[in-house]
Amino acid sequence: MSEQTIIDEIKTEENLVYKKPEALKDTPFHYCPGCAHGVVHRLIAEVIDEMGIQSETIGVAPVGCSVFAYNYIDVDMTEAAHGRASAVATGIKRVLPDRLVFSYQGDGDLAAIGTGETIHTCNRGENVLIIFINNGIYGMTGGQMAPTTLENMKSTTTPFGRDVSVMGYPLKITELVAALPGTQYVTRQAVYKPGLVRKTKKAIRKSFELQKENKNGTCFIEVVANCPSNWKMTPVESNKWLEENMLPFYQLGDIKTPNGRK
């Protein structure tokens, strides 16, 4: 039996172990090569497929690179004003409590202009999922300093590195919301390695399950992400940089889990 024949025999429906999820539209992503947004979008779509929740899920897109998230994730979605995604999610969830509502926000959106909404949504314990993509920089506007930009990290507005005595400190908003009684599940994940991708997906699934069970409390997932274009690196370099520089400060793992659950 030739190698080619073996391969052809492998490519059957029953041997299919990974394909693009149904809940992801056919529109190709507009993101830069290597950007983590595509991975996280795909994971959300995979969880929606696996849980069969497409008809009950409503998403909220932010202002930032992922403003067009609604072009990719095939669920009803609302595009929020900059920073207000969690307030918009609150509005939806309050009038449609049986739907599964998530917001998808970047670091500028969630941790700078939208800090108030983020804190208060979490503090009210809105039964929604907030997905927070932290790449330490403003992507869409071209690489300016974000609230999560690391100390000494260069951006177009901190061209000599972030001087914390002038620009303040990188904000660990995830630890902040974990301290609030309104959150039930707070975790920090990453998607630059296969194992971490699996973990992030589990976190997304767990959050939707908690929401579906109508447990009270906000679920909050930070994904430490890369921004090859604005970090001015190749995608592979950017992931290496992420591992060596972002992760020591933004440590991965569950920060808060619901009572009795792990």
Partner: peptide, 25 residues
């Protein structure tokens, strides 16, 4: 090369959802 094990690692990290994976079960 033809030594793919169907481990899905490539598909997991692909930001474009561009890879379909088969593995002999």
């Amino acid at each position: 090369e033809d030594s793919c094990t169907g481990c899905t690692n490539c598909a997991l990290v692909c930001p474009e959802a561009a890879i379909t994976v088969y593995r002999k079960v």
